[in-house]
């Protein structure tokens, strides 16, 4: 029997050289991401709500022409794209945390997280495509439904 020498034990407060699982500490990255993206989302979402619901006629002014007008400017394309990606990652990670908290069976967690990640991929891909393949002046549509610049 080998004698365990006290010097074989790591010092009590020694920094662990490897994370518990995986190489990088993904939970630390997720924790940090929630805080950084949260602050950015506060600005993006408050701006989104202010421009769409407070200015002018608010929700009554939202129609195809309104969206077409906004997305003809790269500024709002980038704004909405950033908002889409950050909000989807932030929200998906939040729901992932909740699933980990409440779904106790491994199978249940697997099913719920699979559905969650599927919803993430579908929504992000669809939203991104919509922002960049959008035609504000689709041919054959009544002119009164389109942004005014389509007539020019």
């Amino acid at each position: 029997m080998t004698k365990l020498d006290a010097t074989d034990l790591p010092a009590p407060r020694a920094r662990r050289t490897t994370a518990l699982r995986g190489g990088a500490n993904t939970e630390l990255i997720a924790w940090l991401f929630m805080r950084i993206s949260g602050v950015i989302l506060l600005v993006l979402v408050f701006g989104h709500l202010f421009v769409n619901l407070m200015v002018g006629d608010g929700v009554h002014a939202i129609d195809f022409a309104f969206v077409g007008g906004k997305w003809s400017e790269p500024f709002w394309q980038v704004w909405d794209l950033l908002m889409l990606w950050l909000a989807m990652i932030h929200g998906t990670n939040g729901v992932r945390t909740i699933i980990n908290d409440y779904a106790e069976r491994t199978g249940t967690r697997l099913v719920l997280k699979s559905l969650l990640y599927l919803a993430f991929v579908v929504t992000v891909v669809m939203g991104t495509l919509v922002i960049f393949t959008f035609d504000p002046c689709p041919p054959g549509s009544p002119a009164d439904l389109l942004p005014s610049f389509c007539a020019a």
Binding site: F64, M126, T133, F134, S141
Partner: peptide
């Protein structure tokens, strides 16, 4: 948080209707 996430999924879907037609 959960409520906002569920609305976000619906909201991206309803906005995607701009790719179908203005009507």
């Amino acid at each position: 948080g959960v409520g906002l996430f569920l609305f976000l999924l619906v909201h991206v879907l309803d906005t995607a209707m701009v790719r179908v037609s203005p009507e």
